[in-house]
Design a protein around this nucleic acid. Structure first.
Lengths: 216, 216
DNA sequence: TAGATTGTTAATCGATTAACAATC
DNA sequence: TAGATTGTTAATCGATTAACAATC
């Protein structure tokens, strides 16, 4: 069964379904109807049924969805049962926090290497991994063949580095640099985490908090 | 002029416009047409004109947009010229990295306090601020009246704390906990940064990378 | 003025919601 | 069987794109 043609709106919602279903499961719930789940997730029952049906019928008429089954299925669709190799580029404040804070295994990933352009940082240990100098990159990539690059580097370095990493076989970027990297090479996934953009939406909300009262 | 009725699709794009326009400005560009900007941002010229026109006509027929003017206007719309007070709750790996890594001023915010439930952490200095114990919360909030709470805490604590913070006057949450906080109180903005959800979309992309080849 | 490019209306497209027959 | 709830088709809604008259 091909998963092509799934809209990114749906894909973006999958992790949230996975989280909620996992949480309910942990609480000991066995089954749920689309209506109940909709209530908990602030969605419509229609949307949930539509979304899940993109990947096949996980429910049962008159019963609802078995949470165990649903959790496994969504997990498989997302690929969290996999173990994609990831490398972190940039061991600054943010990079080190990501490395230590994230439970990569839970998300189908495995952090296998950390690099930093500052030779002084090489050799220090972060999240149980020795930070490597960039000179090691090619040797390491040939040996380990990582798929994911986590970019925690200044924006000035982002584009050039991204291009180089693609040529070394990286096919997915988790980009924390304040720059939208442009990958012409297709079949390369880019997930931008622009923390600045994110906090600005809060500034917007605060700035316009009472616009509704002040309307015409 | 009221800014109500602007769709969140548009609002979410504003920070990106702001970034690109700022970048072009730094490079010394003076004016740009919607067509050129669309090219650079991988959007359509139509969309750019539609988006900007939600807030008034910043362009000039036959000329395009003056970048200096545009940057200022979008900045004002976003509120990055403001100084909203923010507090960080949770001085773990991620919290400390956010505090030191983010240039809050650039985004209309100002980090004024850091709290941690671990008394052992109280007194240590992060990003130039002394970490406070939670017992100080009420005194501090009464004196400083922060608007934004940055949550870098375990999901188990998130909901209860969020409710308490709302009662103390917080009107915007930047939520890094792996939990969707539910604020019944309206006029409270919540921006979730679910890093787990984000990296899972990469796992999805890798898992389904060759679905197109394998189709029917 | 002629050319360029906006602001804005209309057309299209896609995503969400509603409805209901199928079925457990 | 009767009741519940799905899977799925149809209707609605909103967002994006196209078109073009207004105008600098």
């Amino acid at each position: 069964m091909s998963k092509k043609g799934i809209s990114i709106s749906v894909i973006k919602r999958l992790p949230r379904y996975y989280r909620f279903v996992g949480e309910l499961l942990k609480q000991g719930t066995v089954r749920i109807s689309s209506g109940e789940l909709a209530e908990k997730m602030s969605l419509t029952a229609s949307q949930i049924r539509q979304d899940l049906n993109c990947f096949g019928g996980f429910g049962q008429q008159g019963y609802g969805y078995n949470l165990q089954e649903l959790h496994e299925q969504i997990g498989k669709i997302l690929g969290v049962d996999q173990s994609y190799k990831a490398v972190l580029i940039g061991a600054g404040n943010l990079g080190r926090a990501i490395a230590t804070h994230m439970n990569f295994k839970e998300y189908g990933c495995d952090l296998v290497g950390i690099f930093d352009s500052d030779p002084a940082k090489a050799g220090s240990v972060v999240a149980g991994l020795k930070v490597m100098p960039v000179s090691e990159t090619e040797r390491f990539f040939k040996a380990e063949k990582p798929q994911i690059a986590i970019l925690c580097i200044p924006k000035t370095a982002a584009q050039e580095l991204a291009d180089k990493l693609v040529s070394l076989g990286i096919t997915a970027f988790w980009n924390f640099s304040h720059y939208d990297i442009k990958i012409t090479h297709k079949d390369v996934a880019v997930e931008n985490v622009h923390l600045g953009d994110s906090i600005m939406t809060l500034a917007y909300a605060l700035t316009h908090a009472d616009d509704d009262k002040a309307e015409e």
